[in-house]
């Protein structure tokens, strides 16, 4: 691999984290973001599961993109994605039932997470195997980081906890931040904040 190619790969990886962050810039996959960003442990679990599915589906889609006809590409992608999601769910049930219970319905719902389908459609179906892998990794990490930022804020203000430890016995958390309405509020404020930084630059 030449240096230029390496650089290109790195670009595909890094863009998902900040410049094209799936949550804060592309605003994709907000449904699980609203639902599971209540605690940092949930956020990491959800982020890891989504990253695995993203990598798997991006790789397969980029491998067989020539064989998939334009007209039936969406059902093909969905079948591939659903397969990976089911694999994740089975593994989670077998090795980490507690996490599976905490994430609940949102694990099977990764199938309809727009990030996964969006990357398969917009990126993996047009690009090479290696680039698709880097893109999926970057997007997955970007999604996980975004979930973590939101969940740190929500866990602190909504439940009065930092990584499952209560901050103080006398702290009265604002319950609404822990509810979906609070997630919208936090995401909105963060979006505004990041746009402000972008404008300043």
């Amino acid at each position: 691999m030449t240096e230029k190619q390496q650089n290109r790969c790195f670009q595909e990886f890094i863009k998902g984290i900040i410049r094209e962050n799936p949550t804060f810039v592309l605003a994709l996959g907000l449904c699980p973001t609203l639902a599971v960003s209540t605690s940092v442990s949930n956020a990491i679990g959800m982020g890891a599961a989504s990253t695995f599915v993203l990598i798997g589906s991006n790789l397969i889609v980029s491998l067989i993109k020539k064989q998939i006809p334009e007209e039936i590409r969406i059902p093909c992608y969905i079948v591939i994605i659903a397969t990976f999601v089911t694999v994740v769910e089975l593994i989670m049930k077998a090795y980490s039932p507690a996490l599976n219970r905490a994430l609940g319905i949102y694990v099977p719902l990764i199938v309809v997470n727009c990030i996964v389908l969006g990357r398969a459609e917009a990126f993996a179906s047009k690009r090479t195997f290696v680039h698709s892998f880097m893109d999926a990794l970057g997007m997955g990490i970007g999604f996980t980081l975004a979930l973590m930022i939101i969940s740190i804020i929500r866990e602190f203000f909504g439940f009065g906890k930092i990584i499952n430890y209560p901050v103080s016995y006398n702290f009265h958390p604002a319950l609404v931040i822990g509810m979906p309405a609070g997630a919208l509020l936090v995401i909105g404020l963060l979006l505004g904040f990041f746009n402000l930084i972008k404008q300043k630059k």
């Binding site: 319950l175 931040i177 309405a181």
Partner: peptide, 10 residues
Amino acid sequence: AFLMASWPSY
């Protein structure tokens, strides 16, 4: 409304 949803007991 924010206070009501956040600290309903108070």
